[in-house]
Amino acid sequence: MALNQDDVAKVAHLARLAIDSSNTQAYADDLTSILALVDQMQTVDTQQVDPMSHPLDATQRLRPDEVTEADQRNLLQQGAPAVEQGLFLVPKVIE
């Protein structure tokens, strides 16, 4: 399937990626060639095959729903771009 510049813009928006408009054709070409490679999968009949999400077919291990971690908010916020009174700052969302 060939992707055009509009498709790239749509996917980039879904992924919340700003793409320089001078690069969208190059991305469209690259993604098209990758999808052509990937489309080799369609030559195989897999109707009777169960999808495999874990290489050992293991299921997710659960643990009791108990508090196990101490509060580390100050430590974990040290790397944040903008913090005030323990809150992460972002541009105003609601007017």
């Binding site: 992707l3 790239v8 996917v11 980039a12 879904l14 992924a15 990626l17 991305y27 993604l31 990758i34 999808l35 990937v38 999968m41 369609q42 195989v44 897999t46 095959v49 169960d50 999808p51 495999m52 999400s53 290489p55």
Partner: peptide
């Protein structure tokens, strides 16, 4: 972007599910 495309609405069966079936093969 490839991953986002493969997981986007309408393409899941053709890409991600198909790839997981081939993974089993």
């Amino acid at each position: 972007m490839i991953g986002t495309y493969a997981l986007s609405e309408g393409f899941y069966d053709a890409y991600y599910r198909k790839a997981q079936q081939i993974r089993r093969l």
